[in-house]
Simulated scan of single mutants.
Amino acid sequence: MNHLIEAFEVLLDPDAWSGPGGFGARMIEHLWYTALALLISAAIALPVGLIVGHTGRWRALAVISSGMVRALPTLGVITLAALFVGIGLTAPMISFVVLAVPSILAGAYAGVESVSPATKDAAKAQGMSGWQVLLRVEIPLGLPLIIGGLRNATLQVVATATLAAYVGAGGLGRQLFLGLRTQDYPLMLAASIAVILLAIILDALFELSQRLLRRRMGLV
């Protein structure tokens, strides 16, 4: 309990947030790693997921491959990548992308598949092409589930981004590993709490966006 109290004292200390190695700078790095991993993952997974959901092709392959990727140990992927690309941000970024792609892929094809066949048929009856149905009907109506996939990926990457410090990158993992090396347990707890709070804030923002979308679409 004393360590927990001391951890909150660390987080409430303005000096702990200042400087290039403070919590403020490390949190910005943490957010940047998360955003970059999501951007790369979305560029890979969203088009594939939308096409799979729209056409129904390769769905079984997408599900199986996503399940296999989810089973990979993140620390093991980082270590393996570091052997080939060296220490720094590249190795953990590869791991974060591998971690985020399955959730985004699943959210994309589930969102498109959730649109009722009657709605799609009505759009086609109005003369819409396949691509127009996807862009104007399936994606807008499936957007809550698509955002849900992004939400799950974000939480996974935020929680795992602490491992970037394992191979010499930054982020809140720096404080965590520093506390581990120096046996400064309040610092370790403070870094862990900061990651948890960051995840809660991001999750709340995604929840709010999903609720607004559902309300706008008349789903709630």
Rank of each mutant, 00 (worst) to 15 (best):
A161C: 08
A161T: 12
G171Y: 00
A199V: 05
G22E: 07
A165Y: 02
E6C: 01
A199H: 02
M27E: 09
L99F: 04
H3L: 07
L38I: 04
P14R: 07
S116H: 12
L187Q: 14
V101G: 00
A35C: 02
A37T: 03
G49P: 11
L134H: 02
L4Y: 12
R214T: 03
W17D: 04
A7F: 08
S209C: 11
H3E: 14
L4H: 07
G88F: 04
A82F: 03
R136D: 06
V137T: 14
A35L: 14
L219Y: 12
F23V: 07
G19L: 00
I139L: 00
I64W: 09
G88A: 02
I200R: 13
S66K: 11
L155M: 12
P186A: 01
L38S: 04
G76L: 06
H54W: 04
L205D: 05
G142P: 06
T119M: 11
S66V: 09
E207I: 01
P102M: 08
A169T: 02
G53N: 09
W58H: 12
A106E: 14
L198F: 04
L61D: 06
S103A: 15
L180M: 15
S209A: 15
L105T: 08
G19Y: 09
V69H: 00
G130A: 10
L39S: 14
P20G: 04
A204L: 15
V63S: 03
A43T: 06
L180S: 12
T90D: 09
L38T: 03
L187N: 12
D184Y: 05
L105V: 11
L143A: 10
T160P: 04
S192W: 02
I146Y: 02
A16H: 09
L172E: 08
D121M: 07
G148T: 10
F84M: 13
E207L: 13
L11R: 03
A43F: 03
M27I: 12
M1Q: 13
A125Y: 11
V137E: 12
M128Y: 10
G67Q: 01
I146S: 08
S192K: 08
